[in-house]
């Protein structure tokens, strides 16, 4: 695999990731063996890129909290009851089918996140935007996305500094040691709105400066998104390879045992 870079055609990487994530999504509930296979693929690709499996696994955990959404079905489905009983005043039951769906969703999320972490290791954000533009993403969106990515860290840094300055002035009443929240909720919300408004004005004047700089360099109309990198000559082969991989994974979902 090629290292990431702005000048690369990242289409193959983008297509692979999307196809892989789709194949994972297609696996039916309980196909743990196929999911294991999918995870092996991701981890192996990661290792080839020099990313440790532990690191990838930890990154995958960002999706963990969403499993709350699947909690109701574990307790409310009536099929394959694993356990039913009462806890205090509550009568509870645990559905095997619900548990299977929740666990499968969680594993799919965990593996898919790792796949998109790999995409970032393969292709830089601007090259992903360029690849998407080649794949018919409209120019307005590509330009806007490119600029958003370029100014993201700058504005997040400004936001961080503003928050820090607010924190420095957030003292507790005289005599209270631990941090104490001050003012009414409405006042605090208004303060936050003020921060948002201030940041907007800073962003707006930055946009104006970029505009002026672009104009002074003779740019007209929309900002050029940059020239496209040389097309990947082996794109077709790679896409075919990806399709084979997806097919294998899907077949694995069909053929391998499920629990």
């Amino acid at each position: 695999m090629e290292p990431r870079g702005v000048g690369r055609d990242a289409r193959a990487a983008v297509i692979t990731t999307l196809a892989f994530v789709t194949a994972v999504a297609l696996l039916p509930p309980g196909s743990y063996v196929a999911l294991l296979l999918a995870w092996l693929l991701v981890t192996f690709a990661g290792a080839l890129l020099g990313i440790s499996p532990g690191h990838l696994a930890r990154r995958g955990l960002v999706a963990l909290p969403f499993v709350v959404a699947a909690v109701p079905i574990v307790f409310l489905r009536n099929d394959e009851l694993l356990w039913a009983g009462s806890v205090g005043p509550l009568t509870l039951q645990i559905s095997g089918a619900g548990l299977r769906i929740a666990l499968t969703a969680l594993l799919k999320a965990w593996i898919s996140v790792q796949a998109s972490v790999l995409l970032l290791a393969l292709a830089s954000p601007p090259s992903i935007v360029t690849a998407l533009r080649r794949m018919r993403l409209p120019d307005v969106i590509a330009t806007s996305a490119g600029l958003t990515i370029r100014y993201l860290e700058l504005l997040r840094d400004e936001a961080r500094r503003m928050l820090r300055a607010r924190t420095a002035r957030s003292a507790s009443p005289v005599g209270v040691g631990r941090e104490r929240i001050g003012g009414t909720i409405a006042w605090r919300a208004r303060t936050t709105g003020n921060l948002v408004g201030s940041l907007f004005l800073r962003a707006y004047s930055r946009a104006q400066r970029i505009e002026e700089a672009a104009a002074s360099r003779g740019a007209t109309g929309s900002l050029s998104v940059g020239t496209l990198p040389v097309a990947d000559p082996r794109l077709t082969i790679k896409v075919v390879g990806v399709l084979v991989l997806v097919l294998v994974l899907t077949l694995a979902g069909v053929l391998l045992p499920r629990l």
Partner: peptide, 24 residues
């Protein structure tokens, strides 16, 4: 953490860039 609320009341910190500090 036990004293932070009072520490902030005792120490007034003015940042290098006033734009970070002023938001109202």
């Amino acid at each position: 953490n036990e004293t932070i609320g009072r520490v902030r009341a005792e120490v007034g910190l003015v940042f290098q860039d006033p734009d970070d500090q002023l938001f109202s």
